[in-house]
């Protein structure tokens, strides 16, 4: 019995078009935002497999960036996340790769994000129905499920030790 509640069937309230390619990805971005205590100044994004093929049509990139700006799955601004990123000083680049070396699933992403002198590498998978999971933090394989209804800011509390402080700064940050 995977589905436990009527709200698993009617819900979540989410940005379209795809619960797996869009909504679930917002949560992954949001995890990074909460973990760093705000939007990163720079993020290097790698989209794998199915994400790399259809990300533009599903807005996977916008969903991830929106999440990293603190937007939630039901935020209508996700559509314009790239413009918001420019305004808020979040610079990002996107690489596309065929297969994710860390986790076998078509809907996977890896992000290296920096905020001021802090840095985190996070890998996430979107499992469908708005459900996702963080499977990688820095070099470590983890298993942190996130649903669209979760309070992500509470969820990240147990993982703040993963955030690394960089001694020498590589980039400049505007925030």
């Amino acid at each position: 019995m995977e589905f436990k509640s009527c709200f698993d069937i009617i819900g979540p309230i989410m940005v379209g078009p795809s619960s797996s390619h869009t909504a679930g990805v917002v949560s992954i971005g949001n995890f990074i935002y909460e973990l760093l205590g705000g939007p990163p100044g720079y993020a290097s994004i790698t989209l794998y497999d199915s994400f790399s093929e259809t990300h533009s049509g599903h807005g996977t990139d916008k969903a991830l960036v929106g999440g990293m700006l603190g937007m939630r799955t039901n935020d209508s601004n996700i559509k314009s996340a790239v413009e918001f990123a420019n305004k808020q000083g979040l610079n990002f680049d996107i690489q596309l790769q065929d297969y994710c070396p860390y986790f076998s699933h078509p809907n996977t992403v890896k992000v290296e994000a920096e905020r001021h002198e802090y840095k985190i590498i996070a890998g996430g998978v979107s499992l469908g129905g708005g459900l996702s999971k963080i499977f990688l933090l820095n070099e470590k394989i983890v298993d942190i499920p996130i649903s669209a209804n979760d309070n992500v800011s509470t969820l990240v509390q147990s993982y703040t030790s993963y955030v690394k402080r960089q001694t020498s700064l590589g980039g400049s940050y505007e925030d």
Binding site: D8, I9, I10, G11, P12, I13, M14, V15, G16, P17, S18, S19, T22, A23, G59, K62, N74, S76, I78, K79, G128, G129, G130
Partner: peptide, 18 residues
């Protein structure tokens, strides 16, 4: 159509069938 345009919808049970 709103769903396709990244509008806000309620998944019932999924976004595709909203």
């Amino acid at each position: 159509e709103s769903n396709a345009k990244m509008g806000i919808i309620v998944a019932t049970p999924t976004a595709g069938a909203a």
